[in-house]
């Protein structure tokens, strides 16, 4: 019990700093953002702000457009209404300093782990020496040391996503967009990856927008959980996650964690598609 108390105490000290910093400047800002495909409105009037050292988890029923919103923020898709700003600049195309981690990993099967991780750096025109130094560093960080020359098809899904994560981290982004990054890996691997991502984030906190299907994951990762709901969907609720940092495995055992999980669940449960959610109450 004493170790748990220590975590909370330490977090109580770090947390306020964390908050004020994130409030002072917003890295991602969407103002009345809407997306239409012809007559079909995916989402509308989305107002969202994510601070510099803030993690916002985006949840919502399948088909609510949370992945579409993320793609719009990355500049892969144009929005139909409103605006999306990153560091105050309007997003019209993919921007430097923003990196996305994909649900489908998006690794190039003909490139080794090393070359996949180096991809973003090479496109950004990084010097050879820079690549030689940074790539092993990030491969190390995600726990893939020794796998530099391995091809994606020789690795498990979890390892592939580690590689995808290293590729995104390697460009040292100011904004990290996570598109259900752990949805395609098994439950145990997911938990390990979540905790490792948290500890990496603690080492170098950045802005992170995390789209997920899993309520547990949203509460564990997020400083806030934004719930998208409705047809067309919009921001239905924003839940402050007042759990202490650093978030670790112990966080999962806190009573407050369970409470918050219930709160998020309750905002979503009246939705007809609740069956599609993974509450994973059994844990």
């Amino acid at each position: 019990m004493s170790s748990g108390a220590a975590t909370i105490r330490r977090a109580a000290v770090t947390d306020p700093t964390h908050r004020t910093e994130s409030a002072s400047q917003s890295r991602i800002r969407t103002v009345g953002a809407g997306k239409r495909y012809g007559d079909f409105q995916v989402f509308r009037d989305v107002d969202l702000e994510v601070g510099a050292r803030e993690v916002v988890a985006l949840v919502g029923p399948s088909g609510c457009g949370k992945t579409t919103l993320l793609r719009c923020i990355d500049g892969l898709l144009p929005i139909s209404d409103g605006e999306i700003l990153i560091e105050g600049a309007r997003v019209t195309e993919p921007r430097a300093g923003v990196a996305m981690v994909f649900q489908h990993f998006g690794l190039f099967p003909w490139k080794t782990v090393f070359d996949n991780v180096a991809y973003g750096l090479r496109l950004a025109g990084a010097a050879k020496a820079d690549i030689a130094e940074k790539v092993p560093h990030f491969i190390n960080m995600v726990g893939l040391k020794g796998f530099e020359k391995v091809y994606p098809y020789q690795m498990s899904g979890g390892m592939q996503q580690r590689c995808g994560l290293a590729r995104a981290l390697a460009v040292e982004p100011k904004v990290l967009l996570m598109d259900e990054p752990f949805a395609a890996v098994d439950a145990q691997t997911r938990e390990i990856l979540q905790l490792e991502l948290l500890s990496i984030w603690e080492m170098r906190p950045t802005t992170m927008l995390f789209v997920t299907h899993s309520i547990e994951e949203a509460v564990l990762m997020g400083d806030r959980v934004v719930v998208l709901k409705g047809r067309p969907s919009t921001v239905h609720e924003v839940i402050e996650v007042d759990l202490p940092h650093p978030r670790t495995r112990e966080t999962l055992t806190l009573p407050r964690f369970a409470e918050l999980r219930e709160i998020v669940w309750n905002t979503l449960k009246d939705e007809a598609r609740q069956a599609e959610f993974e509450l994973e109450k059994g844990r």
């Binding site: 892969l76 993919p94 430097a96 990196a99 998006g106 190039f108 003909w110």
Partner: peptide
């Protein structure tokens, strides 16, 4: 299309897209 999307997300030029994605694939 996912791989083309990755290339776009990392701000690849059209030539880069050919070199890194289209031709090797």
């Amino acid at each position: 299309p996912e791989l083309i999307e990755v290339a776009r997300s990392y701000r690849s030029s059209e030539w880069g897209l050919w070199r890194d994605v289209l031709i090797p694939y």
